[in-house]
């Protein structure tokens, strides 16, 4: 079983990112379980979402305490909260940042990758300059870095799950797939 935790801020779409990635894995015949951190969401506050993926039916119905990988939609969360809490050794941390991954090497014991999902979102017209929608782009980076799910499945899932600008969102994921740095 693979367990993934998403960190974002309320309104950034961490929950949608988890769901879109779930459907991408589902298209590759995995069993999936996607859920938000159960709570009272507030815009801008740190939020989490979770994803379990397995080749067999998933019976475990508790929070994810020791994820295999992390997806971080907002780099300012690193340091503000303990994002690596429980993260397994050697797990990937995929961060939305214009900085190179070396900037996050202080997160010792883990592998870091960065992608400027914010710029990708803005140039694809996703959201606004002050509030770009980065949750689809970063999934392209996840696909490339982890190799766990194909970019075509991610693009297909985006087209199915995202309510608007389907082509732009899918294109953003493909661009992030190319541009992610490790």
């Amino acid at each position: 079983m693979i367990e993934i935790r998403f960190h974002g801020r309320g309104g950034q779409g961490a929950q949608v990112a988890s769901k879109v990635l779930a459907v991408a894995f589902f298209h590759e015949n995995y069993y999936v379980q996607s859920f938000p951190a159960f709570g009272v969401e507030r815009r801008g506050a740190p939020v989490m979402a979770f994803l379990r993926v397995d080749q067999r039916p998933i019976y475990l119905r508790v929070n994810i305490y020791e994820p295999d990988h992390l997806v971080v939609l907002d780099p300012t969360l690193i340091g503000a909260i303990d994002v690596t809490s429980g993260l397994k050794q050697n797990g990937w941390i995929i961060i939305n940042s214009h900085q190179p991954p070396e900037e996050f090497r202080h997160l010792k014991g883990f592998r870091t990758a960065t992608v400027d999902a914010t710029s990708i979102a803005i140039r694809n017209g996703l959201g606004s300059r002050t509030n770009p929608i980065v949750n689809t782009a970063i999934l392209g980076a996840f696909s490339r870095v982890t190799g766990l799910v194909g970019i075509d499945s991610v693009a297909l899932s985006i087209r199915e799950e995202v309510p608007g600008k389907k082509n732009e969102n899918a294109k953003a994921a493909r661009e992030a797939f190319e541009e992610v740095r490790v």
Partner: peptide
Amino acid sequence: DAYVLSHTSEP
């Protein structure tokens, strides 16, 4: 169950 089913997506 709230959340554990109501807000959890699965096939």
